[in-house]
Each structure stands twice: as structure tokens, then as C-alpha cells.
Design a protein around this nucleic acid. Structure first.
Lengths: 157, 157
DNA sequence: CAAATTGATGATAATCATTTTCAGATAATA
DNA sequence: TATTATCTGAAAATGATTATCATCAATTTG
């Protein structure tokens, strides 16, 4: 963890930004909740526990900055809020989401699903791919079993 | 075009919704601007040309309704606005976007890039895929050639 | 070291997209 | 026709995000 903070610190310095206490606190919250797809509000409330004097605007500014530095991905699942995910190191292209249309859960998968597909896009459309966003919408395992249980109940009644 | 409006009309009726004049005007705008990724505001302004009395709230309500009926896709490119794309018939799973990080242009491609990938997701994660959203971020053909031209200029000076 | 500059912060106000409210229209049904 | 449900426009309300601004801290300059 300290290692990753150090790296982010260097990345900030290289663009003459500083890792202020507020920024560090924000990054720590992101590191401690890596799989949670936090909104700015979420991050704000969590940071406040450790650093109560921080302002919401600072959290927004920090998240925006980290997003520009490609330290976090700013993503959007269609509810009205942006969510911020710390990028896994070296996993820029293996980060996809499974959004359940029943319960709204979001599972994250790390897998190179699109290596070949990107080559096709580059070849066929001459579009130089730097990044992609892939989200599947469907029914998660839990909701599938619940649906089975529900229909079983129905036929009993 | 009339054919597609008829189909949407039937789809609405099957759920006891009506194709009111306002809704029809909205659908026509979407049909006439199929490749444009219009925001609600965009649609509103275009509809107003033909039906000046329409209200913005009605446009939002109509787009939301069409989105629930899967007639349009509500998509999000990360700027603060939702955009609405009429679904091509039978092309539910072949609709992807190439977003240029230089000029912001959005190209649409119709191609079944993910048939196999969906099977992998279903098999490996037990997630029942109903739909997906795939967006590539990178540099479009135009911006690539401009970048080449710019660096040529630089070495001349 | 003191003064001046710069960047960062917190509080608050402003903005902007979207939703909700509500009273009045419109169409469907009994 | 009376009744009911649906739909509408205008305006207000909401909620996320951004801008403003005075202050603070760190850094540079003299």
C-alpha cells in the first residue's frame, strides 16, 4: 500500500502537483475500498472519518485530478453519479463490469477479453485504441437462483 | 420510416401506452437523426421546430419511456449528459462506439464483436448476459493524420 | 529572515441536467 | 354523459458537480 502511495506521489510530483494530506487521505480511502465503485459522496464520507476537516469540493478536485493522471477511472453506470475506481497496476485493459439488472450489484472482472477485438477495431476502422470500457448488463448468479426459487414458490401456491 | 413508427406504436399499445403527437414528434426526430447521439436538450430543440408547444419535461418522459421499452439506448460518454440512440432493429448486440480523445467525435460501428466474449462471461462467471455496452477510447483516423502533419511542421520550424 | 508569489483548501453559492409536482387537457371506458 | 386513467406544459424542486473567493501553507525571491 505504501508502495502504491509512493508511486502516486511521484506521479503527482512529475506534473508539479503535491500529495497534500487531503489528497493522501483520499487515495488511502480508494486503496482501502478498491472493489467498491465509490461515488464522490461515498469517498467524502469515508475520508471525513479520518480527516473530518476535509471539504466535499476538495474530494471532487482530487478525484478529478487523479482521473486526469489515469490513477483512477471515472465510470458511470447510468444512475446519476460518477464512480471512481483505482486502476490496478498494469491492468489498464483488463477491467470490466457485470451490472445486474435485477439487484443492481456490480461485479468486477479482470480478464483480457478484448485483445483480439482491439486489433480488429484498429485494422478495420483505423481507430487507434488507447482504452476501452466494457460493461455487461444481465442477471447475476444470485438473482438467477432467486428467480428459480420464486417461480418454484409460485407453482406451489 | 412509417413502418418503424408503426412498430413503436404497437409496442407502446401492447403496454397500454399511447403514441401521442408529442411522442410521435420525438420519435421522428430520433429517426431523422439516427447517427447523432442526441442529448435530451438536443432532442427538445429539434422537436420544438416542428411542435413548438412541447415541454422539456415531456421530452425527458418520452425518452425515459422509450428507453424502458428498449426502443432507444440511454448512453453516457462521460460528459455530464445522457444521450439517446434509437436501436437498430435486430442489432441489439452489435452497437459500439469509438470515442476520440482528441476531438471528441463519436463513431458508431455495427459489428458482432462480442459473441464469443459473452459466452465466456456466461460460462466463467455464471452471469446471464442480456446486453452490453462497449466503448473504445482512442484516436480517430482524422486526428491521427493531423498529429502526423503537426509533428512534420514542428521539425520544419 | 521577511516579503511576495503560488498552489491548495473549505465553505458557500452557482450551475446544470434531470425529476417531481400539480392543475389542466385528452382520450378511453362504463 | 360521467368517470376514470393517462398525458401534458410550466414551474419548482432536487441532486450532483463546478466555480468563486477569502484564507492558509508552502515555496521562492530579495
Amino acid at each position: 500500500m505504501e508502495h502504491r502511495i509512493d508511486r502516486i506521489k511521484k506521479q503527482l510530483h512529475s506534473q508539479s502537483y503535491k500529495l497534500t494530506p487531503q489528497r493522501e487521505a483520499t487515495v488511502r480511502v480508494l486503496l482501502e475500498n478498491e472493489t467498491d465503485h465509490l461515488s464522490a459522496e461515498d469517498v467524502y464520507l469515508l475520508v471525513k472519518e479520518k480527516a473530518p476537516e476535509i471539504g466535499l469540493a476538495t474530494v471532487y478536485r482530487t478525484l478529478e485530478l487523479l482521473s486526469e493522471l489515469k490513477v483512477v477511472d471515472k465510470i458511470n453506470f447510468g444512475d446519476g453519479v460518477s464512480r471512481y475506481d483505482l486502476r490496478k497496476e498494469g491492468a489498464e485493459h483488463f477491467h470490466h463490469h457485470l451490472v445486474c439488472i435485477e439487484c443492481g450489484s456490480v461485479e468486477e472482472i479482470e480478464e483480457d477479453l478484448l485483445g483480439d477485438v482491439e486489433k480488429i477495431v484498429e485494422g478495420q476502422w483505423g481507430f487507434q485504441v488507447k482504452d476501452h470500457r466494457l460493461t455487461f448488463h444481465g442477471v447475476c448468479r444470485v438473482c438467477q437462483t432467486q428467480a428459480v426459487a420464486a417461480s418454484a414458490n409460485e407453482s406451489n401456491s
